[in-house]
């Protein structure tokens, strides 16, 4: 398990072949741009199969942050990792829907455990398919 901490950077933890990042604070635009770069690099380096983004501490997700989350998951997909956004609060979910954002293509789970389950199911399904082939 490795991580690095820097001011105004969001730490990325590695658990098995999963990367976990917990967004604890109000996201400033600059931070999320840095995060995008950091994460892409980490996925490539670690060959991670899954990315879990825990947003349970976020009480506002506007269209910009929503778009960034969708971007991150699209980038991860190209790097062959699946992204799961976990822990979105009810008020945030309602607001995003009212805002007109459905975060298409982004997968979601209730908490980190469920998100991990989802990623494991994916990787084992893939392994199963490879085995059959």
């Amino acid at each position: 398990m490795t991580h690095y901490l820097e001011p105004s950077r969001i730490p990325i933890f590695q658990i098995g072949d999963c990367l976990l990042l917990t967004i604890q604070v109000d996201l400033e635009d600059r931070m999320i741009m840095t995060l995008k770069d950091d994460l892409a690099e980490r996925i490539a380096k670690s060959h991670a199969k899954g990315v879990l983004i825990d947003i349970s501490a976020l009480d506002v997700v506007d269209s910009f942050i929503g778009r960034m989350l969708a971007n991150i998951s699209a980038i991860a997909r190209i790097l062959d990792a699946s992204t799961v956004i976990v822990g979105m609060r009810p008020a945030v979910a309602i607001t995003l829907v009212e805002l007109g954002m459905s975060l298409q293509g982004v997968r979601t789970a209730l908490d980190v455990d469920r998100g991990m389950e989802l990623i494991r199911r994916d990787t084992s399904e893939e392994a199963g398919r490879l085995h059959e082939a």
């Binding site: 009480d59 506002v60 997700v61 506007d62 269209s63 910009f64 609060r89 009810p90 008020a91 945030v92 309602i94 607001t95 009212e98 805002l99």
Partner: peptide
């Protein structure tokens, strides 16, 4: 967020207004 707390708004009312403010 602080202003919505002052008028006693609910979680969802606050989130809506703060998100609009952000946009």
């Amino acid at each position: 967020t602080a202003a919505m707390a002052t008028i006693g708004a609910s979680k969802i009312e606050t989130t809506r207004m703060v998100t609009a403010a952000s946009e």
